[in-house]
């Protein structure tokens, strides 16, 4: 083994000779002065900076931070989403929601609806709507420009965005039938049905 090693060394004798011919590099003159000054001043920052530099390779930082950012964004998105949709509603939550809702029931105001009885008599029935008609706007009419506005009214559309109105409670869009038209339409339908029914019965009798 030793002989083998010696053979190898002989093979590279010239390289070894060249390497051994290299001049010996020495530390700078002020090496010790600088070193002991650092020790005196307890200046060990350079060592602290160099210690274990490879524990977390720097090149990983960029992709890791990008991935972490994405995770945070997804987390925020899904946390908001889950809050808004409330996929898990416990019985306690339901009770709480119902209790809150019952407090905010809008006192309905009087209005009418058309009811067709079994004996084909159409009547106008008083109903209570879940909003105050005096404070509402007929959106269809407004859009069609038919019923512009009642000038004095609190229900003027301008009020919706008025600076003077500090509080506005918006219950939502509620369809309101135009009574006379609907009554006429329903009557016409009933009449046509009656006509058809009588025709059919007469045909059957034949």
């Amino acid at each position: 083994m030793e002989k083998k090693t010696n053979n190898k060394e002989e093979k590279f004798a010239h390289v070894i000779k060249l390497l051994k011919s290299l001049p010996q590099e020495t530390a700078p003159q002020d090496f010790e002065l600088r070193l002991f000054a650092k020790i005196e001043n307890r200046n060990f920052e350079s060592v602290a900076r160099q210690s274990k530099p490879g524990w977390f390779p720097g090149w990983i930082l960029a992709p890791v931070s990008t991935a972490a950012g994405r995770v945070v964004v997804l987390f925020l998105f899904f946390s908001n989403w889950s809050n808004s949709t409330k996929p898990i509603v416990t019985s306690e939550n339901v009770a709480k929601i119902v209790a809150e809702a019952s407090k905010t029931v809008i006192q309905p105001k009087r209005n009418y609806r058309i009811v067709v009885n079994k004996n084909d008599v159409v009547i106008k029935e008083k109903v209570t709507l879940p909003f105050n008609p005096a404070k509402s706007v007929n959106l269809d009419g407004y859009l069609k420009n038919k019923r512009r506005l009642r000038g004095n009214s609190i229900n003027a559309p301008g009020r919706f965005v008025s600076e003077r109105q500090t509080y506005f409670e918006f219950p939502g869009f509620i369809p309101v039938e135009e009574n006379q038209k609907v009554v006429n339409k329903l009557k016409a339908q009933i009449d046509s049905l009656e006509g058809n029914g009588s025709n059919e019965s007469s045909q059957n009798n034949r």
């Binding site: 290299l22 590099e25 020495t26 530390a27 090496f31 070193l35 650092k38 020790i39 060592v47």
Partner: peptide, 30 residues
């Protein structure tokens, strides 16, 4: 200091860097 300076210089190929590394070696030793 000199043997280490020679070793580190031949390894990194820069005298200033080698000097700093040997300084840090001695500080670590301390």
């Amino acid at each position: 200091k000199d043997p280490l300076m020679n070793f580190v210089y031949r390894f990194v190929g820069d005298k200033d860097v080698a000097s700093d590394i040997v300084q840090n070696t001695m500080l670590k030793f301390y």
